[in-house]
Simulated scan of single mutants.
Amino acid sequence: MGQILTDGNTRATFVPSIASISAPTVAELTAVGIVDLENTLTDDGLSIEFDEGTIAGPTLASTQDFEAPGRSKANIDLTGYRDSITANDRMWTVMVRGTVGFLVVRRGLVVATAYAAGQHVEVYGVTCGERRKLAPERESQEKFSIKLFASSTYNIDATVAA
């Protein structure tokens, strides 16, 4: 079977600074100040969806309507768990409203695999929205969510550089 599994094979990192979104470096992805998110996010807590506008292109001579892709927009929502140990609660303490950075997502490799040159990643320039504590649930841990606003260009086909 050639299907790519997601369980344990999706890495997500909040990175304060990236010089080139098409080629983030290993040093940038592992620098002091990054926030490893995959052990904080719920198993369905990484939601990246796209809205895409439509450009109408009808002509007077045609009996059909034509259209082309317009602007696209990434909609990113994260849902994670709180941690009672402050040092482990970095998503909550670092990603506060107004914090600017980059969400980097790597899919298809075991999470424990270190970032390395040649790996394919998605890079989204974002600004963090307000952290929202979620309603308590029976037999659950405390959860919260953050909307990440696409505040600069993104690249869904980036390659890690050395």
Rank of each mutant, 00 (worst) to 15 (best):
T86M: 08
P58M: 03
E52L: 02
A19M: 08
T13R: 04
A27D: 15
D83M: 05
E122H: 09
D44H: 04
H120K: 15
G98V: 07
K133A: 12
P24E: 10
A23F: 09
D157I: 09
L134W: 01
I21G: 05
A87T: 15
V35C: 05
F102M: 06
K143F: 03
R132M: 08
R132Q: 14
W92G: 05
G33Y: 05
V126C: 10
T159K: 14
A162Y: 14
T25L: 10
Q64N: 09
D43V: 01
T10G: 08
D77C: 13
G2H: 14
Q141D: 10
R107F: 13
N155H: 11
V105Y: 04
L109P: 00
G101E: 01
E49N: 12
F66E: 11
A74E: 06
V35A: 02
N39M: 02
T127G: 06
A112N: 12
S17C: 08
T79L: 03
T79A: 06
F144P: 03
G45Q: 05
V32G: 10
T40C: 01
G33A: 03
D36W: 00
V32L: 11
I85C: 04
G125C: 03
I146S: 03
R90Q: 08
A31D: 14
V100I: 12
P69Q: 08
G80H: 02
L103G: 08
A150K: 06
A61G: 15
G101F: 02
A74Q: 12
F14H: 07
V126E: 03
E28S: 09
R82T: 15
L103W: 04
M95G: 09
G53V: 06
I156Q: 08
F144V: 01
